[in-house]
């Protein structure tokens, strides 16, 4: 059971790390893309930033839900 949680954890961790790395690398090497206004007159910097925060919560929720199922 523990290793199942650990495997799931690592998978979700990898997904999030790639998402975060994308943000950091865009900022570091193509900062101008952050000024792009994709939607509702709000720039990519804010959308991506909020996405990272809400994404962390969403992945945490998925992890909590799946771990509970495997346990009971």
């Amino acid at each position: 059971m523990e290793s199942k949680n650990a495997r799931l954890g690592l998978l979700l961790f990898t997904i999030y790390t790639l998402f975060y790395a994308g943000f950091v690398l865009l900022n570091a090497f193509a900062a101008d893309t952050m000024e792009w206004l994709p939607f509702a007159g709000i720039n990519l910097a804010i959308w991506y930033g909020f996405g990272l925060i809400i994404g962390a919560f969403a992945l945490a929720g998925i992890y909590g839900f799946l771990c509970r199922e495997s346990r009971e």
Partner: peptide
């Protein structure tokens, strides 16, 4: 600061 919690939770 928040992204760091992903390391805490998953690892």
């Amino acid at each position: 600061f928040l992204a760091g919690w992903i390391v805490a939770l998953f690892v």
